[in-house]
């Protein structure tokens, strides 16, 4: 689905990561891990086609991302940004409906199926009763859930999520992860998510991409990549591994 071959990303004065290669297939759930400032967000932007430098290094179903029209790309790739500087005066439902833009065919108003997917997405993040509320009145965690609903309503084949769990309470962290795992397994969507702690990836993700501070990266199945030694080297912090039922968790060993 999404392939990335020998991608190098840099910001002025620094190479963030070099030689990033991996293939994201439908049904897979990738975790992108790294320290603060290691280039996780830049990578998400590059994979989403929002940066110019990848050129043909990133391909969607074989076609270079840069060769697709904006709308085609938006129908296939949904992005949840880490920081969305939202200046939105309308209701929560109107906010979520904007996610339907790549599918909109009419200039005058949304169609019924747009509204249906928006309401379904709101229900998925437990915000259905908030639909008529003004977006500006939501709390931080509720806003994050509304943003997730917006990208769900977009119904892309590939989700790129930058810190999807930020501001969420534990219950909604678990619900969000379960929701995307369901989409990956049941609806054959591809998911890649930037996470900033080591607690969840080994429990929910099928694959992982580690970005080290020196710019080297390690990508592969979670079982091989998410080991205690790898993660300790990544974070520079001692970890303890907890095995419980079907999952493994890593917590700081302090």
């Amino acid at each position: 689905m999404l392939s990335c071959e020998d991608l190098t990303l840099s910001v002025p004065g620094r190479v963030l990561c070099r030689g990033v290669s991996f293939v994201l297939e439908p049904g897979q759930l990738w975790a992108v891990l790294g320290r603060n400032g290691s280039g996780k967000t830049t990578l998400v932007h590059a994979l989403a086609g929002l940066r110019e430098e990848p050129g043909a290094a990133v391909r969607l179903n074989g076609a270079a991302l840069a060769s697709l029209t904006y709308r085609q790309r938006a129908r296939d790739i949904g992005v949840l940004l880490q920081q969305e500087e939202t200046e939105f005066w309308g209701s929560v439902l109107e906010f979520v409906l904007l996610g339907r833009y790549p599918h909109a065919r009419s200039w005058f108003g949304w169609r019924d199926d747009d509204e249906a997917s928006a309401l379904e997405a709101l229900a998925a993040v437990e915000l259905a009763p908030f639909a008529p509320r003004r977006f500006a009145t939501l709390s931080g965690g509720e806003r994050q859930r509304a943003r997730i609903a917006q990208v769900l309503a977009q119904q892309p084949r590939l989700f790129l999520l930058d810190e999807p769990l930020q501001h969420l309470d534990l219950r909604h962290q678990v619900r969000t992860l379960e929701c995307f795992r369901r989409l990956a397994r049941g609806a054959a969507r591809g998911v890649a998510m930037v996470l900033h702690d080591a607690l969840w990836p080994a429990r929910f993700c099928t694959h992982a991409l580690l970005i080290h501070d020196d710019g080297n990266t390690l990508a592969g199945p979670a079982q091989q990549v998410l080991t205690r030694a790898n993660l300790e080297r990544l974070y520079g912090c001692e970890l303890a591994e907890l095995a419980r039922g079907e999952g493994r968790y890593f917590v700081p060993n302090v």
Binding site: A48, Y70, R71, A74, L81, Y101, P102, W107
Partner: peptide, 24 residues
Amino acid sequence: GMARAIELDLLGLGRIKAGSLGVG
């Protein structure tokens, strides 16, 4: 303005988000 009404709504989400939703 009417022809670009939805794009204008999307501008409120910021350049990057609007771009990711397919706005030129």
